[in-house]
Nucleic acid binder design. Structure first.
Lengths: 249, 249
DNA sequence: CCTACCGATCGGTAGG
DNA sequence: CCTACCGATCGGTAGG
């Protein structure tokens, strides 16, 4: 009812991932190539089922047999599409992040050309809430909860994508800080903002009274000062008090 | 260096839990009674090891064999102290919550008699950050991450304790709302505050520049208006816009 | 708390 | 994608 499906990420049948598969060039004949990062209908179905189950039960508690039977195939067949259970998790999170990056770009492109930092942040927050709370979209919750089950290198890859996602947030928050519109340094504000946004996963009710737009407005009111009140510089904690290495989320 | 050990919760050798064990009254002779919620040194050691491992690897990825060998006992021996692996998890979280309730009471008791709502909230936030980020204290992270692995009834028990823990927060935030000191309704503010506090688990560095007191001050600046600025009533979202049933965390 | 063990499950594979 | 299967692991128990 409320959730727009322009945020349904997992089922985009096309992928940007143009890995150099099939070097010989004999494509399209016979069985689909294993090992190619391709998108068959079954593959996408498995990704969606896996994402849902990883979210509800966790990665470890989900068996590849569960996923297979929910998709109506035999217990060994998921391994035709994914080498390991772990690769299934990685693909869920990676493709989720890819479309998140795209849809964030799209949301920003709808802003007026000379949008203020405040307007931009407002759009970012609203988009993020959609991403997070759209019932059909499980990957964010999986990414936040199941990072532990990724291999170290996979984790680094996801972290880089997250860094790209947050870059615009950094810029906008820096600008707001310069304008004296924040209550705390930009870095702390950003981490607190993401924390409280992600916390919504634990309590927000899609059937409830509070719309995502209202929720976004509340967050803006909390984290950004209204103009008119006297601006301030922050006495405690310099501008870079945080260890950027540990900056997950 | 920075973390005070008055917040070390798991290793309090005495427990409040006075379950009516040993109905016949012949206590203290022979082997310790199984099934009694008692505290042997080994039992506490197992709880600490389990908490650490549940936090680092997750409940499902932790094997009772790991726990046993880290404690230097045989693989089947943990089941002498705990009926199931699940009971081990439940005990970690439950006893953690018990001492959290105690230490929160203690922190509040150190406040001046006529402390303002702002001062009280400040003390609550600082105590909560200690609870959350003290390196020797794993149960909060386990509680937040591994709720899924609790049985439904266990989850309800923990939820009741969390409700007690949050009661004081509710009262203080309601008072601040009445004074026009919040940027959003008390309920939304509380959930956003807890979300951003819990988010610290993902990025706060105990070795870093930012002390817990400084961090607490930042949070207070974000979530509570400074006096002097014009107060406001919140136009969007009535006073109870949230579904209280789903109010985890 | 140890010894010795069971039953079940699960990720993954060979070969078609 | 199916059939048929393996090897390993794991929670838990009986009996002392």
């Amino acid at each position: 009812m409320k959730s727009s499906s322009r945020f349904s990420l997992q089922d985009s049948s096309e992928t940007l991932d143009v890995t150099p598969s099939d070097p010989a060039g004999k494509r399209g004949r016979g069985r689909p190539r294993k090992k190619a990062g391709e998108s068959s209908a079954r593959r996408n179905e498995l990704l969606q089922i896996a994402a849902r189950s990883f979210r509800l039960k966790g990665f470890d508690a989900t068996t590849t047999r569960d996923i297979a039977s929910e998709s109506g195939i035999q217990s060994g067949s998921p391994f035709y599409h994914f080498k390991t259970k772990n690769e299934l998790l990685f693909t869920v999170v990676k493709e989720g992040m890819e479309s998140a990056l795209q849809s964030q770009e799209l949301a920003l492109s709808h802003l007026p050309a000379q949008a203020s930092a405040q307007q931009t942040l407002s759009a970012l927050v609203l988009h993020h809430l959609h991403l997070l709370l759209d019932p059909g979209n499980d990957f964010v919750a999986v990414m936040l909860t199941e990072q532990r089950s990724l291999l170290a290198e996979q984790r680094r890859t996801i972290k880089r994508m997250l860094e790209r996602y947050q870059q615009i947030w950094r810029e906008v928050l820096d600008k707001l800080e310069q304008q004296g519109m924040l209550h705390a340094p930009a870095s702390v504000t950003r981490l607190a903002l993401f924390g409280s946004l992600h916390g919504c996963l634990g309590w927000y009710d899609n059937q409830g009274q509070l719309s995502l737009s209202e929720l976004a407005a509340h967050y803006m009111n909390i984290f950004v000062r209204r103009p008119g009140a006297a601006p301030r510089r922050h006495p405690i904690g310099a501008s870079a008090p945080l260890c950027p290495e540990n900056d997950n989320t």
